[in-house]
């Protein structure tokens, strides 16, 4: 479903501030794969998602989604294939539009938008049904402006907006990091539910190793722009947080040695 070949991204190339955020990253997700992504700050996780979504252009390599080469496609034209939820609960919704209007924009993601009504009776019924899945009572607040919702509610809504249209690929970038633990838990549970229900292919960045091991069927660890560890479902089940920490420290050591030598 998703295939990355030799994807690189360097910020400020050729200057003193040069940052190689992605180095020859290769990654393949089969349909229905749910991979968690971990790595220290600055490892390139967000850059990876931004490159896949098209909000950043790659310097080299190719990106395929559902068999289509999207490497050169601008972000808004990839939206028909993928949907994303950002870390910032404010980022995924339009605060001055109502819940149903936000849902309408999500529903028409990647389609041509004409002069038909944004929210008609049929759509409203569908939105109500979808919102009920969240169990937050939002289905009774269709005409509430999203800016009036709490961070947790907004993030749950963003998640629903990203998923109910069944995109080929769902990208989640630390989407629970800005929430308090209880709400983070709720949104994580919702994430697992919607991904399972709609059998989505998903890539979820998290800073919580336990969560990364618990959720999804694959795990990817990044460090300094490289994927340094990939676990399949079986391996994942047998791995503990301590194992991950060990792996991380040893790889870090190796990489430090390598850079000393070179």
């Amino acid at each position: 479903m998703l295939k990355l070949v030799g994807v690189s991204k360097t910020f400020f190339p050729g200057t003193a501030n040069e940052r190689r955020a992605l180095r020859q990253v290769a990654l393949e997700l089969a349909e229905g794969d749910f991979a968690t992504v971990i790595g220290s700050n600055g490892a390139g996780k967000s850059t990876l998602l931004n490159v896949i979504a098209g909000s950043l252009a790659t310097d080299g390599g190719a990106i395929m989604i559902d068999g289509r080469d999207v490497t050169k496609l601008p972000a808004n034209r990839r939206a028909g294939l993928l949907a994303r939820v950002f870390q910032d609960p404010q980022a995924g919704t339009a605060p001055h539009l109502t819940i149903e209007q936000n849902m309408s924009i999500a529903l028409t993601r990647g389609r041509r938008r004409g002069l038909g009504p944004g929210v008609g009776r049929r759509r409203r019924a569908e939105f109500r049904e979808q919102l009920a899945v969240l169990g937050l009572g939002l289905e009774n607040r269709l005409k509430t402006r999203v800016g009036m919702l709490s961070g947790g509610q907004r993030q749950a809504l963003s998640l629903l907006m990203a998923s109910f249209t069944r995109p080929k690929l769902l990208l989640l970038d630390e989407h629970t990091a800005a929430l308090d633990p209880a709400r983070a838990e709720l949104v994580t549970a919702l994430t697992e539910k919607v991904v399972a229900d709609s059998q989505l292919t998903a890539l979820m960045v998290t800073h919580n190793m336990a969560q990364a091991l618990r959720v999804g069927n694959r795990l990817v660890m990044m460090h300094e722009g490289e994927i340094i560890l990939e676990l399949c479902a079986d391996q994942k089940r047998r791995t503990t947080v301590a194992d991950l920490m060990d792996r991380f420290t040893s790889v870090k050591g190796q990489m430090a040695d390598r850079s000393l030598l070179s």
Binding site: A79, G92, Q101, R111
Partner: peptide
């Protein structure tokens, strides 16, 4: 609605496939 989203949250608009 796409025009409104453009002014209200451009990042969301682009992610929603709006040019």
């Amino acid at each position: 609605l796409a025009a409104q989203a453009t002014g209200d949250n451009p990042q969301m608009a682009v992610a929603g496939g709006i040019s």
